[in-house]
Design a protein around this nucleic acid. Structure first.
Lengths: 217, 217
DNA sequence: TTGTGTATAATTGTATACAGCAATACAAAC
DNA sequence: GTTTGTATTGCTGTATACAATTATACACAA
């Protein structure tokens, strides 16, 4: 549940560009000039510049002084992202468990139920979205802004590759089981266990993701 | 060694505001309006807006739609920053050791020599700067952008409190020793050891920082 | 052919103008 | 006195205008 501030053009431009870069629509090496984006997106330079500055801050682009070159997410980046998540996301789960509220319990319960629902229906696209939401929820519920601000952008950056994972039904099964275990630990208030299970879950996801990348080139 | 792009006004505004917020010159809760900053800094709204968007991305301010409220760094943030550094910075040291170059060795050697120099002179202010540079160098030398981009902003955010640490001479001694040990491990190519020592070093720094905060209120 | 100089075009950096929204204050009506 | 309506003010969001810089192309000379 986020803010409902009617998103400005600058926000929309940022979201669109971030998404397009993460999904490779703007491939690594492509040069984005402000004028080109003005024409493509039909907005003026001001909101585009603000979006570019934010993308730069996330190292998705690099300003060359003469257009911004797209950096995107490399395989190495992905490995490092998973390494960081592996080491931090358990901490988020720990704090989320400690700081759990009735509202948080409801949200998590809703998410695991939704997961079961789409699991039955074998709806991979929706399952991926729920997966996203589950991991983001752990971050939000930790109530720790630094941890949240570290992890949530990393989640966004792995979105493209998590979609691929969802095509492996064995992995989908395991993910569901692991999420349910984490859920149980968090609801029962066992913060240490939640931390441990979350770390293991990310480790598994990392291994699977890297194997998948080897196969797909 | 960074880029030499003649910094734009937007960059300067960002640097100034980031620094002032981190050092509490703009205290938590203060409202920054674009107009006020235009008057204070003598530049137009465009570069100010871009700086504000970047500060927002780093969660140092929050846009309320009617001015930006300063968030700054809380004690809780500081704890979490150190937790993250504790878990990631060793990984940076590991990769820095693996990817070490002649140039990197020179830079590190220069830094530990500089550290000894200022240590002899008991120059705390310069020691703090070298401390900054040493930890940033580990990140840069890892050649891993994601790890670097995660840690370097966190270093900036702890700067204010590391200055305080430098007043405890016992801690200054320990820091010097620990840096030297990390340095030796990195130069000798023992990545595992460098990782371990770096993690321990951050743990010690964290403990010391939290103790210091208890005493100082 | 190659090198050099100049004009031109492309692109960013910065400032400013304008519109819209929201809060505030103030006045008038009940 | 309270409430309601309206004008004013302050702020942001967006567009655009202008300046400065860098790359490009082309012409002309060696």
């Amino acid at each position: 549940m986020k803010q409902f501030k009617s998103t400005s053009l600058a926000d929309q431009v940022f979201d669109k560009l971030e998404n397009d870069i993460i999904h490779g629509i703007y491939p690594r090496g492509e040069i984005l000039t402000e004028l080109k984006l003005v024409e493509q997106l039909g907005v003026s330079r001001t909101p585009i510049r603000e979006a570019l500055r934010r993308l730069e801050q996330e190292r998705l682009i690099e300003d060359t002084g003469k257009g911004s070159v797209v950096l995107g997410i490399t395989e190495e980046d992905l490995r490092d992202i998973m390494t960081i998540r592996e080491r931090i996301e358990g901490v988020a789960a720990y704090y989320a468990t400690i700081n759990m509220t009735e509202e948080g319990r409801k949200e998590l319960t809703h998410l695991v139920e939704l997961q079961d629902f789409y699991y039955q229906k074998r709806n991979c696209e929706e399952l991926r979205k729920v997966d996203d939401q589950f991991h983001d929820a752990i971050c939000y519920l930790s109530k720790r802004t630094v941890i949240m601000d570290t992890l949530v952008p990393l989640h966004r950056k792995t979105r493209r590759y998590r979609r691929i994972s969802m095509n492996d039904s064995a992995r989908v099964d395991r993910t569901r089981e692991e999420h349910n275990e984490i859920y149980k630990a968090m609801i029962s208030g066992d913060a240490e266990l939640a931390q441990e299970l979350t770390t293991k879950h990310i480790t598994n996801a990392k291994i699977h993701m890297l194997e998948g990348m080897k196969q797909n080139g």
